[in-house]
Structures are given as C-alpha cells and as structure tokens.
Amino acid sequence: MPVRGAALVAFVGLVAFWEFAVARGYVSPIFLPAPSSVLLALGELWNAGTLWRHVSESLVRLAGGWTVGTGCGLAAGFAIGVWSLGRAVGVPFVSALFPIPKISLLPLLILWLGIGEASKIATIALGVFFPTAIATYAAIDAVPRNLIRMAQSFDLPAADVLRKVVLPGALPGILAGFRISTSIALILLVSAEMIGAQYGIGAFILQAGNLMLTDQLLAGVLLISILGLALGTALTRIERRLLRWR
C-alpha cells in the first residue's frame, strides 16, 4: 500500500520542512513560528487551564446553534418537501434569505438579544437553518416517486409512507447537508467570537493576533481544525452506520 501512506509522508515532510526552515532562520518565528512552538504554546495553555475554558465555551455555542438550526431546518425542509402549501410559502422565503451572509446579521442580533450567548447561538442557528432546510427538501424531492406510489398501492397510511419511505429515502441527502452545515457553523462560530466574546477559540485567536503571539494564534487555528476534523469523522461514522444498505 505505498499510495495509502503517501499523504502521510507528504504531510510529515511539509511539517519537517517548516520546522527546518524556521530553525535555520529562513523565516522569522514572529511571523511563522515553528510547528514545535505551536505545540508548546498549546501545552502551556493546557497547563494554565485556559484552554478548556476557551474550548468549552466554543463547544456550547456550536452545539446550541447547530442543534437549534438543524431542528428548525429539518422541520422547514419537511414542511416544504411534503406539503404543497409549505412549498409555496417556504421556497421563496428560503431562496430569498439564503444568500444573506449570516454574520452580517450579528450586529442586529446583538441589538435584539444582547452581547451574550443568545446572539452568537442565533447567528450560528441562522447559518445552519438555510442549508439544512434546502438539503432536506431537495433530498425529499429526490426520493423516487415510484416507491411512494408502491407504498400507497399497498395502502400504507400517510404517516407510514413518511416514516418508512420518505424519511429513509431522504436520509443520505440530509446527512450530506449536515456536512455542509457543520462547516458553516464552525465559520460562524469563529467569526461571532471574534466580534464579541471574551472566551472561545475565535476570541482567543483574535487576542493572540493583537499581541503578536503567533504561536498561540496558530495553536487556536490548530484547535479549530481538530474540531472540524472530529466533526467530519463523526459524521462519516454516522453515515456508515445509518446508510449500511448503500
């Protein structure tokens, strides 16, 4: 399996080259600290106890915003997907509001909800809502009509058609939508924390930047990447489990 290891070798090679370049003084460690200093900074943060504080506040916002946005997005997506009045009302709404960069609404949300957690969670929820709603109704639209007709020909009640045919048929599309919505949630999390938060990975990255502590700054970026990677891996696991039939 020489090809399978290739990515790892390239990655390790790049990091080693980076380390080497800083150690030899080709680049200034103030602008680009060595990978080892980034890890060291991460260790210091861990020891100081501030790391967990930043991470846990971010996780609460992310989980809260994503859950609210996904719940509402699924509900709206289903209403549009299975109900013609829901579609008539919902599609123009969703299409009109989807293109608004949700971070631009944060100042308004701060005015409405205050500078605390609610405005950040609402921003993330809004950002997650639209792609989830769109992915859900598109996935429902893609469920083969012949399967629904088959279920009806065997006299399945509407609720059963929904639960046994439409929902499982739409699941792959809905899960693909989750992948998009988690990455959007991460972007909005960091942005919202940069605009108005004391704690949180985004706030931490901004503060480190202001103090030119580039090793800490990159440690924050590393944390966000790890978070994104972990979420992606979790989604892959869930997909494998739920979509075994594919």
Binding site: N146, L147, R149, A151, F154, L156, D160, K164, V165
Partner: peptide
C-alpha cells in the same frame, strides 16, 4: 389484506430494507 395489488416494472423495492423487510412492508400496517 390488499385486494388489488401491483407488481411493478422497476420492482419498486426499498433499497434500505432487506428482502424480508421489503416483503414485511406490505404487512406491517
């Protein structure tokens, strides 16, 4: 249980159900 019953050209099987699950679909309700 279902006096008028179809057999479809494209089979109309649920890909996420096993063979027995597909047959049971017509009976479960």
């Amino acid at each position: 249980l279902n006096p008028i019953t179809y057999i479809f050209q494209d089979f109309a099987l649920l890909p996420w159900r096993t063979v027995e699950g597909n047959v049971a679909l017509a009976l479960e309700h």
